[in-house]
């Protein structure tokens, strides 16, 4: 098992290196001189030259990359052009918000969707199954940003039950914070729930066909034990991997949801950085999100190995 962990972790390294090259190259591909972009039009040529030297732009590209990577590895992601705040600090400030919403959404989605998918498959081709499939495919087809707008319209504007936009940290005001969290989390959870339920249903159908399930029934075990011990556990492994994908969807889509609800998360930071051409922040966001995503997929991989002993080789 530990060899497996070490091997999977080691395999992450080259991927992350190429990720960093892509991020570096992307920013360098922006038309125009970074030094000129960072300074405004009124600055003199001398100032621009000084800036170029300061940024190391007069050196060859591979050297620039090496210096940049060295800085990144020591936690120095540069400073925001817009606010002058160190990028690492800005990312750290915003990460908590996004992490809270994402984790809650995944938790809610998984808790509801796993039993739903299991039951749908067990009751294949019945009304229950039809209802679960129908609701899943419906939620799967709703764009989260529209669902969010509609929720705001219904619950905040028409009914006035919940605050429309904004965010209060739950560590400062627990109840108030929760009220701000409900709509964003529900929006994300409903859509992701559909994905997990469909995956779980498909996996369960696969497992139900297998001989060991028939074998378990042939031993005279009650159906509840067959389902929980033999079916659910083996269907869960592949369904867990989808959590990695969902997290990708949530992180990659954080910009959209956080824009709808005006939440100061990392997605909003990314979009604002794009609007403001704040490239150090953009770079930082890309690197951080990719890094988190790769790490979570590693964890999912390892969780899979725990659930399915065959993988632990």
């Amino acid at each position: 098992m530990w060899a497996h962990v070490a091997r999977r972790t080691a395999m992450m390294v080259p991927t992350l290196l190429v990720v960093s090259i892509i991020v570096f190259a992307l920013i360098r591909a922006i038309p125009g001189d970074p030094a000129e972009i960072m300074l405004n039009d009124l600055d003199s040529d001398a100032a621009i030259t000084a800036m170029r030297t300061e940024l190391g732009l007069d050196r060859p590209l591979p050297v620039q990359y090496a210096i940049w990577l060295g800085n990144v590895l020591t936690g120095d992601l540069g400073t925001s052009i817009r606010t002058g705040q160190p990028v690492a600090e800005a990312l750290f400030d915003r990460l908590g918000v996004t992490a809270t919403i994402t984790a809650l959404a995944i938790g809610v989605a998984v808790l509801l969707a796993i039993p739903a998918g299991l039951i749908a498959a067990w009751k294949q081709d019945t009304l229950t199954d039809a209802a679960i499939i129908g609701v899943s495919i419906l939620f799967l087809s709703l764009p989260s940003f529209w669902l969010g707008l509609m929720m705001i319209w219904l619950f905040a504007i028409t009914l006035g039950w919940l605050p429309a936009i904004g965010f209060v940290s739950i560590s400062e005001d627990f109840v108030g914070g929760l009220r701000y969290l409900i709509m964003p989390v529900a929006t994300l959870a409903l859509v992701e729930m559909a994905v997990v339920a469909r995956m779980m249903r498909a996996q369960t159908l696969e497992v139900l066909r297998l001989d060991y399930v028939t074998h378990a029934r042939a031993k005279g075990l009650p159906e509840t034990i067959v389902l929980t011990r033999h079916v659910a556990r083996n269907a869960l492994g592949p369904a867990v991997t989808v959590i990695g994908l969902i997290l990708g969807g949530l992180l990659g889509g954080a910009s959209v949801t956080e824009t709808v609800f005006s939440i100061p998360g990392i997605g909003r930071l990314l979009v604002d950085a794009i609007y403001a051409r704040d490239y150090p922040v953009l770079q930082g966001c890309l690197l951080l999100i990719a890094f988190i995503y790769v790490c979570v997929n590693l964890l999912v991989d390892l969780a899979y190995a725990v659930l399915d002993p065959r993988v632990r080789l």
Partner: peptide, 11 residues
């Protein structure tokens, strides 16, 4: 490793 919209946003 760039999840979902992220790469598209960057491009």
């Amino acid at each position: 490793a760039f999840p979902g919209l992220l790469l598209a946003l960057a491009v």
